[in-house]
């Protein structure tokens, strides 16, 4: 009998599988607590977007002017997170009414969309701040 047959093959490492654990009830309880402030922030962003848009729409300027274009841009910049957050809060509603892994996945995906937008905006914002600081110091 050779040595190689004597040594048993190494057992695969014991790893906790993704399906092993149940989602805890407190996760849903905390999501329920987050729903209200998320909706408040969403509504606030929506109102600001409407106000900024109204400032451009009712300004005594031609439509094809820098001021109006800039207000459209800023209104969209406020409207986008409002939409993401509103969908996030709706996903929480859905998760609370029919709790389960797909609902949690949806909540996280909606949240990811919001954070991806906010993260991208944050990076652009920081770069612009640094560029402005360098430009003014020169």
């Amino acid at each position: 009998m050779s040595d190689t047959t004597a040594i048993p093959p190494a057992a695969p490492p014991v790893r906790r599988t993704a399906r092993a654990e149940e989602l805890p009830a407190r996760l849903f309880a905390r999501l329920a607590a987050s729903r209200r402030p998320v909706r408040v922030v969403s509504i606030f962003s929506f109102v600001v977007a409407i106000l900024v848009f109204a400032a451009g729409a009712f300004a005594d300027r031609p439509l094809w002017s820098p001021f109006v274009m800039l207000t459209v841009f800023y209104a969209c910049l406020w409207l986008t997170p409002a939409i993401y957050l509103f969908r996030y809060s709706r996903a929480i509603d859905h998760a609370l009414s029919s709790p389960g892994a797909p609902a949690i996945e949806r909540v996280l995906r909606q949240q990811l969309r919001y954070w991806r937008f906010a993260g991208g905006y944050a990076v652009v914002h920081l770069l612009l701040m640094i560029a402005t600081a360098i430009k003014t110091s020169l």
């Binding site: 092993a20 989602l23 009830a25 389960g100 990811l112």
Partner: peptide
Amino acid sequence: YGSMTASIVATAASLRRWVRVI
């Protein structure tokens, strides 16, 4: 309440990156 799926794990990992940026 259902169980932890691989998709939830992947989304959580991606979410962490952007949360860090903010």
